[in-house]
Amino acid sequence: MLNEYDLSVGQVAKRCGVKVSTLHFYEQKGLIKSLRNQGNQRRYQRDVLRRVSVIKAAQQFGISLQDIQTAFSHLPDQRTPNKDDWTQLSQTWKTQLNRQITALEDLRDSLEGCIGCGCLSMTSCPIYNPNDTLANKGNGAVLLDITN
Rank of each mutant, 00 (worst) to 15 (best):
R99N: 12
V12N: 04
R79H: 15
P81C: 07
S73C: 06
T22N: 09
L144G: 02
W93L: 09
S64V: 05
E27A: 11
S8N: 02
S90V: 01
E112P: 01
E112T: 09
T102Q: 14
N148I: 00
C16A: 12
V18R: 09
D6E: 12
S121D: 14
L7C: 04
V20H: 08
N129H: 08
Y44D: 02
Q28K: 15
Q11C: 03
C119Q: 15
Q66E: 13
I115F: 06
N3H: 13
Q96C: 08
V142G: 08
R42S: 03
L49M: 09
I63L: 13
C16I: 02
N3K: 15
K83W: 01
L49H: 06
V12H: 06
V12L: 13
N40F: 07
R46Q: 12
F72T: 03
V54Y: 12
L120M: 12
I68F: 07
Q38A: 14
S34H: 03
S110M: 03
Q38W: 01
K14Y: 06
N131C: 11
N40R: 14
R36F: 07
D77G: 09
Y44A: 03
I101S: 04
P81T: 01
I63N: 11
R99P: 00
I32R: 09
T123M: 08
I63S: 11
E105V: 02
M122C: 02
P81L: 07
L89Y: 11
S21F: 08
L143H: 08
Q45C: 08
K19Y: 01
D67C: 07
V54K: 05
Q69E: 11
D85Q: 07
R51V: 01
F61L: 15
V9M: 12
T133F: 10
T102W: 03
N40M: 10
Q11I: 00
G10R: 08
G30V: 01
N136L: 07
G39I: 00
W93M: 08
L134H: 08
N136S: 14
Q78F: 09
L49V: 09
A103F: 04
T95W: 10
A58H: 06
R15H: 10
N139D: 07
F72G: 04
K94N: 12
K56H: 07
L143G: 13
R36Q: 06
L143R: 14
S34F: 01
Y44H: 07
D84G: 04
K83E: 14
I146Q: 06
F25A: 10
Q38I: 04
L120H: 11
V18F: 09
Q59I: 00
Q38S: 14
Q96E: 11
K83A: 15
S21V: 00
Q38V: 06
R43N: 04
L104A: 06
Y26E: 02
L35K: 15
E112N: 10
Y128Q: 13
Q59S: 10
Q96G: 01
Y26I: 02
S34P: 06
